[in-house]
Computed example of a mutant assay.
Amino acid sequence: MAEEIRIKKKAARRGDDGYKIVSVRMKDELIEKLDVLSAQSNRSRNELINILLSSAVDLVKIEE
């Protein structure tokens, strides 16, 4: 597994554009963890998912 991913707190802000809507099924436990991180970082769940996925995509190695 990767090292930890650090996310800085920021001031509340809404209305960023330039994104596409994607529907994803997630387990309740994962959503609960995202909600805790969201509250701690003062970022929306959507913003956190984008940050985490952006970081994770660079860590993926496809095995043959």
Rank of each mutant, 00 (worst) to 15 (best):
M26E: 06
L48C: 03
L52G: 02
M1C: 15
E4F: 13
E32A: 11
L53H: 04
L34S: 02
D58Y: 07
S23P: 02
I7Y: 05
V57Q: 09
S23H: 10
Q40T: 08
R14I: 09
E3R: 15
K10R: 15
S41Y: 02
I21T: 09
D16F: 09
M1K: 15
S44I: 01
R13Q: 15
S44K: 04
R25M: 08
Q40C: 00
Y19C: 06
R13C: 10
D28E: 04
D35Y: 04
V24C: 08
L34G: 01
A11Q: 12
V22Y: 11
Y19D: 10
N50S: 12
I21H: 05
I31Q: 00
K61Y: 03
S23M: 08
M1T: 15
I49A: 09
R45W: 04
I49K: 02
S55A: 11
I31G: 00
R43V: 01
N42T: 06
Y19E: 09
R6N: 13
D35P: 01
G18Q: 09
L53S: 07
K10S: 15
R13Y: 13
V57S: 10
R6K: 15
S54D: 04
Q40G: 00
E32V: 04
I62M: 07
D28M: 02
K10A: 15
S55P: 00
E64L: 11
L59T: 12
A11R: 14
D58V: 03
R6L: 13
